[in-house]
Design a protein around this nucleic acid. Sequence first.
RNA 1: GCGGAUGUGGCGUAAUUGGUAGCCGCGCUAGACUUAGGAUCUAGUGUCGAGAGACGUGGGGGUUCGAGUCCCUUCAUCCGCACCA
Length: 927
Amino acid sequence: MDYNFNEIEQKWQQYWKENLTYKVDIDPSKPKYYVLDMFPYPSGAGLHVGHPLGYIASDIYSRYKTLNGFNVLHPMGYDAYGLPAEQYAIQTGQHPAVTTEVNIKRYRGQLDKIGFSYDWNREVRTSDPHYYRWTQWVFIQMFKHWYNNDTQKAEPIDKLISEFETKGNSKINAACSETPVFSAKQWSMMNEKEQQEILLNYRLAYLADTMVNWCPALGTVLANDEVKEGFSVRGGHPVEQKTMKQWLLRVSAYSQRLLDGLDKLNWSDSLKEIQMNWIGRSEGGEVDFKIKGHDKMMRVFTTRPDTIFGVTFMVLAPESDFVDLITTVDQKDAVQEYIDETKKRTERERMADVKKVSGVFTGAYVTNPFTGEDIPVWVSDYVLAGYGTGAIMAVPGHDSRDFAFARHFNLPIIQVVVKAGDEPSDPLTWDDSYDSKEGTMINSGFINGLDAQEAIRKTVDEIEKRNIGTRKINYRLRDAIFSRQRYWGEPFPVYFKDDVPYVMDESELPLELPEVDKYLPTEDGQPPLGRAENWTTKEGYPIELSTMPGFAGSSAYYLRYMDPHNSNGLVSKEANNYWQDVDLYIGGTEHATGHLVYSRFWNKFLFDMGLVCKDEPYKKLVNQGMIQGRSNFVYRIKGENKFVSFNLRNDFEVVEIHVDVNIVKHDVLDLDAFRDWNPEYKNAEFILEEGKYVCGWAVEKMSKSMYNVVNPDDIIEQYGADTLRLYEMFLGPLEQSKPWDTNGIDGVHKFLKKLWKLYFNQNGEFELSNEKPTKEEYKTLHKTIKKIGDDIERFSFNTSVSAFMICVNELTEQKCHKREILEPLLIVLSPFAPHITEELWHLCGHAESITKATFPIFNPDYLVEDSFEYPVSFNGKMRFKIEFPLDMQKADIEKEVVKADVAQKWLEGKAPKKVIVVPGRIINIVV
RNA sequence: GCGGAUGUGGCGUAAUUGGUAGCCGCGCUAGACUUAGGAUCUAGUGUCGAGAGACGUGGGGGUUCGAGUCCCUUCAUCCGCACCA
């Protein structure tokens, strides 16, 4: 019987489905293990061969854990809301729900063919009202909570209100927007609207005027992680800065906890690094500078308070409130002109000429609290409004941006730090600022002679003593803008009364997405929901028109999988206590600053509420590398319909043209297929080399336009899912990015055929012998058991595949057809190739699925040897091998090896200087 | 500029603690079987050299009996962040 993979795979996929093989339930008798894949956005293009890489890895791990007695939760679902479906809807009028449904069906079909062990009973879709009801519900809870910096956790807003009622807000240490101080009495005097506006400053989900990333082409605002270099990540449209009233999540309240939490996580260093940079903690202090001729103080944030004696000017961000306040009459026009100029520039342009120095003097001065000197205040766009206080003290001597600015505008530069071994020098001779991370303070009054670190401490102490500032930690992490002016997303369970937002009662959930006639903004610029009829509460209050962003639905999906059908809560206590958290999360690194920050935040909030038992959601995270495309080229002779083979192309003037990789094998073009590929090439002629047309190749992104997309369905059709699974793993280390190259797939497919043959006799009948295996056969099996177990534990799946090949090669050599070897081998292989092993397992006479088997136990006794063939090196170069018993004494080996005939040649009659013997490893002779 | 990762045959890669560099596979070469081969099997395949042998893990230097692995230095590629005070 031949290995008929198509038949076998369909048969077992059907069996698994009918027998609910992969259904899991809470089972307190077994340890739990939760393996999660980052769920996909179901795009219209379907899956290409790169998408399942991580899914295959996690599936192998899940199956392995199951075989080892764990109760494994391994779910899958869809991040079904998103821009592409909506853009398509705008173009075609087709409801995004319809296209999404079609795409999901296609994804599911493709996933099923690969033979994953997902419990589909637990599938979630973010666009399903049963699901997004809980997204909305969490939003309501965030609205109803504030962050108490003293207790370092979220607390109910009611508690805050009663605090306001009794003591006002002066004693409250909250993560909040800027709010004036008020007393209990003042609070009680406020009307409802005023109170609600104050409360918005405290809520974890709040509405505020903020500078947002506005993308005109998409007609929506975007979060920071959705913008890269001034363009939208989705679609690549330009993004501009604009002030708008938007919903935000107070993620910044959790900055420190998000940072601290990283320590405990088993994530790659590079990923942690990315998150640390994104959160961007910097320690320093805030200092007040008295503005001359005003009562007000100008507060700046600095990480280097020690350099305060080196301050020669101040710089304000163009958006700073101080600009209007302090600009003198004769500088007004110049400042206004500069601000108008900067406003016109897009974020993109601003970033493009970082090196270009620009700015304008306000005419105003502040007083340095330590030197008493007057310092001019400038405005420049190198200072960001959103970071620190939007104002800086410039220390041109020791900061390269300040240095460039001072040089450009001829402002004084003072050296206040000198490195050990250096002499102070004249700043006029410098090309750049002087590195001051370490060194001794000079020209710095009371901190002169101190080491910089010590000086920082002493300066801050002094600042606090004089009550002109405080120690301060700043974070780069911004609150997340949470509204999108789009249709295809979760509606906000929010209505407006007197322009003040209120959340709906939980009983009103889910607030379902209404129908609209068009998926475009309204004529007066309102979001698409402005087109919905009766988009009001029962009482007639208008409902919020924005919808939630993509990360809303993906922030707690891992919790919902634990208890997907629960209609009383996001997740039950029972389910959460059992499944706890994700033990293994596999996905791409592209979510490092988006999803992985937001969902950690989201989870910490739920943890504060006492709803979940773990404060970090993803214990271990593995980033699979990207699968790039491998493109092929043909070379068309200019002006002719004639193509020249790769190695002859330099003899002609040619144009390089992408050719579909699916009609190229081993870089040799299928000429007939090429002629059929495009009518233009129907009559193409070819200049061949050795009778073949050889194509060029390059590694590029996998995309339709490069004709290098390889579809898993085609591979499965040709080789089967087991081959696909093995080959994806065989390509190289999981975490490394690599091009997809179908060329090597034959080897993996041959391996399966070879495996298959071990179970069949010469007449093609299934036959195993019950004979006792030889020592060698046992050794082969147990070596493999050990290797595979170790490899899976460290996600080294590529080496597993070659270990299986070695195993099958050896068993073939040994002509082993013994049940005692070949049955356990099936179990070991089954996580990788579930179909063929299931088939053979049943042929072996088992009635139950191989997934219910137990992973064989490695017995080291089978690997014990009594002698070892030592490699013998001379001065580190291996020259010959010689066998000695393993229990032979070092001294005896030393004597024996020198006596050996072959050794004489290398010793050239001389006595060795030294002989090193590492038992069981190596002998090295120094001559 | 800062941070991270990676450099090994024609190609994908292996070498888990410093101990035989190149496992496994692709491709290639030769052969067997075959009407045929994009099937199967056998042998070979890092480079140079007729050979003995020499060289060889991006380059240079070091530690060591011994370095792909450790240290210093340098180059290249990829990724992330970036006027963050």
